[in-house]
Write a protein that binds this DNA or RNA. Sequence first.
RNA 1: GGGGACGUAGCUCAGUUGGUUAGAGCGCUGCCCUGUCACGGCAGAGGUCGCGGGUUCGAGCCCCGUCGUCCCCGCCA
Length: 619
Amino acid sequence: MTLDFLGTLERSHKCGDLRSSHSGNTVTLMGWVNRRRDHGDLIFLDVRDRTGITQVVFDKSVSPEAHAKAEAARPEFVVAVTGAVRDRGEGLRNPKMLTGDIEVVGSELLLLNDAKTPPFPIADDAPITNEEIRLKYRYLDLRRPELQKNFALRHKVTRAIRDFLSDNSFLEIETPLLTRSTPEGARDYLVPSRVHPGHFYALPQSPQIFKQILMISGFDRYFQIARCFRDEDLRADRQPDFTQIDLETTFPQQSTIFRIVEGFLRAAFKAGGIDLPEVSFLQMTYDEAIAKYGIDKPDMRLPAMVDLSAELTAELRGTLKIDATLPVYGFTIPRVGALSGTQRRALVDEIRKGFGDCGLDFLDVARLRTNEAFMPLAEAIAAKLTAEQIVFCGENFTTDDLAVVITPKPGTPVAWNQDKQWIAKRVGGLRLELAKKYADKHKLFEQTGTAKDFRFLWVTDFPMYEWNEEHKAWDAAHHPFTSPHEEDIKSGALWNDKGSVRALAYDIVLNGTELGSGSIRIHRQDVQAEIFRTLGMSNEEAHERFGFFLDALEYGTPPHGGIALGLDRIVMILAGASSLREVIAFPKTAKAIDLMVDAPTPVSEAQMRELNLRIAHRS
RNA sequence: GGGGACGUAGCUCAGUUGGUUAGAGCGCUGCCCUGUCACGGCAGAGGUCGCGGGUUCGAGCCCCGUCGUCCCCGCCA
């Protein structure tokens, strides 16, 4: 087949443009052949570009040359077509197409390029389950309308955020990608220096220190759509390189940050076609989140766990053999519907099994009734129901809900707050597991366009430190530049009672997904030094690792704070996708491999020599 | 590092208790067709059953190992 040259031809419209108002116009469209329907002397070509699809009809009796070329055209051929727009007339319209009222009567067809038969169809909207082949042929996958839509959405959302922040006097400033290893929690991606043998740059896990320096430099408000890199194992919502909306401002209250984030999220969601109500997001402290949901990123679409201690009289505790000191958790999974006796027993077994290996043997109580009346826990116990038969009646409890009551095995020592939190986390984990298991039934997680249920939540007052049992040392719960509460500094707790110190750190959570995390930072050198000390970093070590930053703190550092949000996750949620790979153009597999370019790869001996590197082959 | 699911035609999948020549739909190729739009009709091509080993008279199916993709735990301030 001979291909045609483009010559000086330009397109007059895009494939999604034409309406019946264009009837009579002569137009030139360019794009890909989406489908061909060959009726012999009459051939239909659907021509596709990013904007849509237009039907072009070739009639042998009208334009025999163009018709002959249309016969040769195949899906994904690149064509330029010139012809008159014609209203299709009654009975021939296609209401499923935006351009379905018209067609182009092809008088000239240029075959600009041919195409091999693609490994999977581009025109179908049928899902392709083989991700390996999608990623290998990513350029074809991206050509599919579904992904085209996702990236148009991503652009709109990014733009809305950029506009909002710009309008609120944030300056977009870039920070280096080749930088030094910083103290954040994740593993660094390292880049060897050719000029300095044995020295390495690190790719930033976030622009954290740079943005604080920018505050010290007096830029007042900074933001960046920043690429970040973390060498940790992947998940559906985690890629090794990802994008954050990173921002920082001077002289903020925590509420200042909240207002800004709520503002741009509202703008971002609006760009995604969703109007969020003009009310502030809910707020909850970390301790409350753990106590009520057993997790630091509660999914507010599900009801909280309930502390049933109050329902248990001493007598009832005796009957159930529950120590007076033990917490009793009740929770419901809404609208699970009927479970058979067999299903219920299997569930009880499963819960038992799930808790069997964690050092705590939980008294499990799970029962669902759809047609029977419920009785309160106390009555149930009085009626001498066995543990498995007891029904928990919580608030807003309907007959379709699944109720679960859990308490640790009698005699379990619950010594201090962290024990209680540990138990709450276990129970909260079960709660989430069950919610996922019955997700189809209870419909709470259904994601249907604008009808989605978006429950934003600020989680505040994270602990400043977490005790690391393995290393017998304190770790920074957020990062070491996070400011403690002023009261906890004034009270002396910062020095005397490290476990109780609260951080001015906050997470923004949406439907159980952590969208972002931030804090008010330390602006005083003395406080910063104390934090480093507590984290087990000597003065020398602190100065070696970020002397430049400690120095900067001494030249008039204003109070400042900020946050970073995962752009990929935001777009993923707005796109209704279940994986980041649907909203990242060139994503990596679960083993961090790019199947299209085939990265990473070994490099040549010469490159290695130049970098003064040698591979140590471990046996 | 650990647990789980999957791997059969280009794609989506079926394949019985281990039994002759491994199937379907879509796609692809050729021919026919002037109103289709998931066009239709006829004919056809297309397979290292991921890979390696084992058991067996006989393996897509059973066993061992290995590779790949996905999901989860650990990890990710």
